[in-house]
Design a binder for these strands. Structure first.
Lengths: 341, 341
DNA sequence: TTAACAATCGAAAACGTTTTCGAAAATACC
DNA sequence: GGTATTTTCGAAAACGTTTTCGATTGTTAA
């Protein structure tokens, strides 16, 4: 009752393995009659090509790897969904690994995927990643790779991102437009490009509007497992440090929600006393009260787009045609809710 | 600059492929000297065994498949994390597919995984799955499979679950203990075992406490993509149908949150007018206000446990030893918060 | 000195597929 | 009828590894 092979079919029909293979793959040099015969027997035997053998022969696995910092995360799980859906459409399967924001793990997992000989890799960098030689090594091997969200600008590969700087600018501008006079920022970790860009957008909006940029108003959080708690801690610290802040732009919704929880515990009213804008538009943000004004980050589309890009590169490599890396920038939108006036 | 093979190493050292292979795998019949030589050259050439060839030869892929109804879901993404982490520890990779609560897709994806020749499969059934022949076919093929959370009782395989009936009983009992006199239930879809069990637990708690079970107090929701909206809709309907309900046990947190949103919009106070208990303990439930009393469902541990079980079966199959299916039941806990008195 | 034995290696088959190339058979054309 | 052409098939090599089984050498014991 084991899986049937080409040989089994060939023997039953008194044909050669070659002919059976060709019949199933629709080669022109096999008669309609035998083709039909073969296909029918294949179906009744429930024949499924042995992927191991196919992979060995064709040198492709129809499998891609995905490395993300965290799985349990509204944005990232949407990305996963987008990638998996799109990949399945094109006949690819997705192997998912979680780097846990650790550079070491990320390196190890990249190696794992290479060992597994996936046809391509999609990756969002860990917070801890400052050196990119492991990524460059992949690219040097001519293995298709696309980065998304948490990218490294200096690495020469395709990327799918949003315009973090512009989005952050929008968010900050919104705070200003609604009357905030002194605006703080809870930024993300120091290394990731997107938290840098969001910070820069915040700063630029301030300056463009004639505000003075005050570094003491910028708080850092790692945005890892402890995002919520970091938000609480930063909010508490902010209240101790300053009594005139009336608006905060926060790197991530989850941190923002932590901050809001802390504020309401201490009797600080949102948005009356302090307005808050988050980032990412987690579903959660729409159901808390007050609901959180935020930047919508299209996770599903980013995943879809990342796979599409990767697919193009895989195809290009197969045909041995040149391919120049491309950066796709998706649109974001400000979602106005009750945490701002 | 392509990947080195055993042959490459063999040629450079004037050895046979056989000896090189044996040296790398630590066979005893190769001298320490050549073993060292081979290992060193392998390292400098960055040799990585071709998994396709290894798989073909050994007939195992060191890969497992995972099919879940939805990825973007607090509980399920925790399960993914648990499975992936545990699998990586044992040298297995995980291919993830989303059935989208569709029976047809589930069937197709199961087929895909079989074609891919994964070493085992972990699955949580789609809401739409009423027929289990596709699952039984896998088991008949002697391919290790374990089900979790949304299981089918009649299928003979290992399972990782919680005691849904008991948990629901606990939840309902809590409503009764805190003074609720007329308790409704928003149940899940009709087919899944866990929504049946939760319903039965609810019913039993009522009866054990001398309440009369009233079917008109039970509302259904599919608990798919539209969970939140379903919660709103049901809440609205409930208010139209009844004016004496003072407690609801709801199949899922997200539905509960939808209901709470609707209630507060309509001026119904929680928990003063109506107490609510959800199910699953989404993170979100702790940060909304009022925070939601719920049942904690250990997603990460379930994932971990599911892989461990699968791993045992894979090993058993390899050694050709018998294996009797086992059902692991994990503990749940009532998390008391502000949506109940 | 031989026989027995251990240590070290390699030839070869196998896993199941794909694809190239040539052979045979059938058909067409003159 | 003979030649040219098309149609249909299969032999064989290749992908890279693992493993069985002998072969060869060197070592030990009698």
């Amino acid at each position: 009752m084991k899986q049937a092979t080409l040989k089994d079919i060939a023997e039953q029909l008194n044909l050669s393995v070659t002919t059976v293979s060709k019949a199933l793959k629709g080669y022109p040099d096999v008669s309609k009659k035998t083709r039909a015969m073969v296909k029918e027997l294949a179906k009744t035997l429930n024949y499924k090509p042995n992927t191991f053998a196919v992979n060995l022969r064709t040198k492709e696995s129809k499998t891609i790897g995905l490395i993300i910092p965290v799985i349990v995360h509204h944005f990232f799980s949407n990305v996963i969904r987008g990638i998996v859906a799109q990949a399945e459409k094109k006949g690819y399967l997705v192997i998912i690994l979680q780097s846990n924001e650790s550079y070491e793990l990320e390196k190890k997992q990249l190696d794992l995927l290479i060992s597994q000989r996936v046809d391509g890799i999609i990756i969002s960098l860990a917070n801890g990643t400052a050196d990119f030689s492991h990524i460059n090594a992949i690219i040097a091997q001519d293995k298709p790779l696309v980065m998304f969200d948490k990218i490294a600008k200096v690495v020469q590969c395709s990327k799918v991102i949003i315009d973090d700087r512009k989005a952050a600018y929008m968010a900050t501008q919104h705070l200003i437009d609604t009357g905030c006079k002194r605006i703080a920022h809870f930024r993300g970790a120091l290394l990731p490009q997107n938290s840098i860009d969001r910070f820069l957008g915040y700063k630029k909006a301030l300056i463009d509007n004639g505000f003075t940029y005050d570094p003491s108003l910028v708080y850092i959080c790692e945005c890892g497992d402890m995002s919520f708690e970091e938000g609480q801690k930063n909010a508490k610290q902010l209240l101790e440090d300053h009594n005139d802040v009336d608006g905060i732009f926060i790197n991530t919704d989850l941190v923002a929600i932590g901050a809001m929880t802390e504020f309401s515990k201490r009797g600080v009213k949102i948005p009356e006393d302090i307005s808050i804008v988050g980032f990412s538009n987690w579903f959660m943000s729409s159901v808390i009260s007050p609901s959180l004004t935020t930047i919508d980050q299209p996770g599903y589309d980013m995943g879809k787009s990342a796979f599409k890009q990767l697919f193009k590169e895989i195809k290009a490599k197969k045909k041995n045609t040149a391919f120049t890396p491309k950066t796709v920038t998706l649109e974001t939108a400000l979602v106005k809710r009750d945490s701002t006036k």
